[in-house]
Amino acid sequence: LVKHPLQHAWTLWYYEPDRTKTWEDNQNQVSTFNTVEDFWSLFTHIRQPSEVKIGSDYSLFKENIRPMWEDKANKNGGRWMISLNRNQRPELDRYWIDTVLCLIGEAFENFDDVCGAVVNIRPKGDKIAVWTSNSNNKDALIEIGRKLKEGLNLPERFKIHYQTHNDAMVKNSSTVKSLYEI
């Protein structure tokens, strides 16, 4: 069996809230893969987002990029935010797998700005975000955002928002400023 190589190696992380540990210690590396076959053997053997404990996250990032703002690959970047409402939970698993397939299949063509993606499973509404490395690279951001909406089959009226990590860090603001919306 010849395995199909991916352009990049990817690491899946799983975060489960545990007040006795720090946020960073709650982030666990699950596995790293660099072929399509190894990707499927991993993803078909783990619980889907809709099956994990509320308050948990999955993150899929290029190898050696940690799923946190502080990482050197993320600190000048931002993310496309896809905010789902409560009754979109049945779609969550499909949206997540479609996001992951965009990443590992390099759907964003000539832009290499993608760092990874995060799915937050939350009671008030789940969120999927795709993180990019440079929030000033408008051409790349718009292309990535468009391909993302296309890859997830999101209707035109369903808006997704790009926000820089620096803006997202501002604690006291309830709503985060978004740089772009498509």
Binding site: E106, A107, G151
Partner: peptide, 18 residues
Amino acid sequence: GTKIVYERTFLMNLRNSP
């Protein structure tokens, strides 16, 4: 340079291969 790109349907088809 060249880049290894996979379409969604192609990736989904590989899901069921042994």
